[in-house]
């Protein structure tokens, strides 16, 4: 269980998160909200990439606010970047091997889960030679390979084609059966939001709403815009 207590984050001239209090249980939580609401910032604070200006992070009761990224990763927190990072010289295989704790699991299976054929991709370099969607899917695969207790995906659907998208939704649906941890999805997509046990809506650095899917989903304006996807 992961708990955020009174988390604030500000840069020199801007307050980005205001007193965020949240609890993530071992279920699927979807965080949604307008661009700039502070979703990615929150995810980075959980991973330790950003240090909160004030407040506390508790992981299974332990205060990890001052823990480094590496320490958190080793404790079982994983984060898939909104924007995948490129590496010259590092192959897909190298990245997956670094990510995978269980050395026996075939790397192929992680690529299959994001709809990529291992034989076409394992040897490719994680550089600009891969398309944006391919890089994004490999980023997701690298985090699936980590098999962690708390896993955050920052807009996993971004840049992914429709066919792969529905596969991805299935992957997340089954994720729970396999890992039994907390799965946190940051998403604007209705299909993703529908996976949620709990939905968090953020706005302007604040938690606007938290509740179960049945409570929150009807209040989101997604469905009101018939077919055109008002939030897409």
């Amino acid at each position: 269980m992961l708990q955020l207590v009174d988390i604030c984050y500000s840069t020199k001239d801007k307050q980005i998160l205001n007193n965020v209090n949240l609890t993530f249980k071992d279920e699927i939580t979807v965080i949604t909200g307008a661009n700039g609401a502070g979703k990615s910032t929150l995810a980075k604070i959980i991973m330790g990439i950003l240090k909160p200006t004030s407040g506390k992070i508790l992981y299974n009761g332990q205060d990890i606010t001052d823990f480094s990224i590496t320490e958190r990763a080793k404790m079982g927190i994983a984060f898939a970047f909104q924007q995948p990072v490129k590496f010259k010289g590092l192959r897909v295989m190298d990245m997956l091997r670094l990510a995978s704790k269980d050395k026996k699991v075939a790397l192929n299976s992680y690529l299959a889960q994001v709809g990529l054929c291992a034989k076409d991709y394992l040897m490719r370099e994680l550089s600009g030679e891969l398309s944006g969607g391919e890089l994004k899917r490999i980023e997701i695969a690298s985090v699936l390979a980590r098999n962690c207790n708390v896993t955050i995906f920052d807009e996993p659907e971004a840049g992914i084609d429709l066919w792969s998208f529905s596969n991805l939704v299935d992957t997340f649906k089954h994720f729970e059966d396999q890992t039994k941890g907390a799965l946190i999805l940051i998403s604007h997509q209705e299909k993703m939001i529908e996976l949620a046990d709990t939905i968090i809506v953020m706005a302007g650095g604040n938690v606007e709403k938290v509740g179960s899917r049945t409570e929150i989903l009807p209040t989101l304006s997604i469905k009101s815009c018939n077919g055109c996807g008002g939030k897409r």
Binding site: I69, T70, F81, L98, S142
Partner: peptide, 28 residues
Amino acid sequence: AGEQLLKLLSLGLDEKEAEGVIIDGFLK
């Protein structure tokens, strides 16, 4: 690149290991 380090740290590598992976890959 800072982003490259962050990505590898988030996989559980420490800074020395991450730097090694990036440099070895780059020169391979």
